[in-house]
Design a protein around this nucleic acid. Sequence first.
DNA 1: CTGAAAGCGCTTACAG
DNA 2: CTGAAAGCGCTTACAG
Lengths: 337, 337
Amino acid sequence: MRVTIAEVARRARVSKTTVSRVLNNKADVDAATAVRVREVIAATGYIPSAGAVGLARGVTRTVGMLVPGVTWPWMGEVLQGVADVLEAKGYGLLLSTASRGADSLDGFSRRVSAKAFDGLLLVEPPDAVRHLRVLHDSGLPVVMIDDRGRRPAFPSVGTDNRRGGAAAARHLLDTGRTRLATVTGPHGFGCTSDRLNGFHDGVREAGLALDPRLIIEGDFTSESGEAAILQLLATGPEFDAVFAHNDLTAAGVLAGLRKAGRAVPEDVAVIGFDDVPLAAHTQPPLTTIHQPLREMGESAARQLLAQLAGAPPPEAPVIVPTSLVVRESTGAPRTAG
Amino acid sequence: MRVTIAEVARRARVSKTTVSRVLNNKADVDAATAVRVREVIAATGYIPSAGAVGLARGVTRTVGMLVPGVTWPWMGEVLQGVADVLEAKGYGLLLSTASRGADSLDGFSRRVSAKAFDGLLLVEPPDAVRHLRVLHDSGLPVVMIDDRGRRPAFPSVGTDNRRGGAAAARHLLDTGRTRLATVTGPHGFGCTSDRLNGFHDGVREAGLALDPRLIIEGDFTSESGEAAILQLLATGPEFDAVFAHNDLTAAGVLAGLRKAGRAVPEDVAVIGFDDVPLAAHTQPPLTTIHQPLREMGESAARQLLAQLAGAPPPEAPVIVPTSLVVRESTGAPRTAG
DNA sequence: CTGAAAGCGCTTACAG
DNA sequence: CTGAAAGCGCTTACAG
């Protein structure tokens, strides 16, 4: 039999009101009474029912999180960052997946309407979500986590794709490369243009320019990286470095270069973007631009909690900076004979 | 202003009882009345408050899930499997992480006591969890997902590590290898001994035996794989194949062989275990024993839901079989000169 | 410092 | 077929 506040009150010979007061550390409770109540609580192992407290107070101390899917290699880090700060503050995390399309969104918006959580974290939300009427109507605090660089419809945290691209260019230039190629992400993604523009920035700062024939569009798969390199090798101008817009593409680039008999980093340097677990285990290990995924998760969760506490939502997106992780796929070029 | 059942009742000119009845599709409601109520529900966009329903009914339609951490490479698949079946059935998923140690477990057991969910999924639970008094006291339905092969304290789903080990041996033998080495997981893990025993089984079935000097203990890191190979190469007997107890270790084995100038698969074949995303991108791509992680998640979730529906917990662990994924790290050996 | 009562938004016997 | 009332387990004015 579950012990309730009524049972605690009975045993401590006080009213439920008083028990509630000591539970919530309100002032104005006689010290001796409080001690007695606490003893009963400890003895019975009483924990207030989350549901009942929620109904009475109108809050759930639970945060919803909608993610496109949870198998993406970088999702784990984001999730862990979120979970860490939420748990530290005693909040629950109600996870929803948009992997089943419209059905998922239906179920999800039901939960919104059912007030199953106090606030919401949206990771790279499908466009449909931004138009969910319930979200706007409900006045639910929302924070978006998005590295796609779209104009946010909600307060958001992202990373600095443009500076990351610039850092990639600088690193290649600094290590003696001169003819830089790029395999981009899909056209139309904000992060693709940001990373590419940043790469341009970095090259331009050095007083150089990118050869447009060395910019190939990929689609974030390793296949696209390999195909791009093979094409470049067959028909393009010479190059001594490749910036791939994500690590998977970079892995494909490495595979393509290997097939063609080009040594990395001696003949060609390769740099990726993301720093997923894979990056440390390619051959050679991949230099890459680290996305601060865990920090983004933490930051988003903290912001949401602040809003729940009454803080106004920040008007500008919060940006967590990228960083350069140097491994072995970049390094000194083969000394010209 | 949120619309409540009282508001719906008022607008439809019936009692809350009747609204509740049509909401829950009870029989014995006049057809015309039901239509009227449904119209009001549609017009107002009314959704019952999850908290209120939960309090009245005593269930939350939410399942808790405790995981050791969410950044492990194979966690995503398990989570996705769980999420898919839970969402399809309209259940919520309340995710908890044990990554902050005792603190996490405290917060977690509070939620158990607070009846924040109807049932619980435990992934490779820390030993502390199995002794949580609340779990036993609360009578909460629990299903464990564990590939560590420990004797389960709860109904559980696992995979067949032993058969997986045997399949690895068979594959190596079938492709012409004769001197098989192994880099195991840490001593004391149930899965380590299962995979090793299975490997023995496979070798024995062929009428052969394992050379004990070719069995090296690793710790599931790529470093341990590389170190093991280097040691074997330096001081051990000859070998032409390596079975690593997980893919990360196998990646280390590949790195060690490369440093030593041994070609894979020509000189040495390598097979891993798990089939994490990394496995498809090592050089060469890794043949491995696939763990059915997503299916394990699905199966566990389905079982838990069945228990919530009143089914008795299965007495024996449910086993989802592994499968062999052949890539390029195994294949024909160099023809003996 | 303390308690009786109303209320949070539902469901469920019970009575008609 | 329908509704008034009690109950789920808390919190919170309000009164003393």
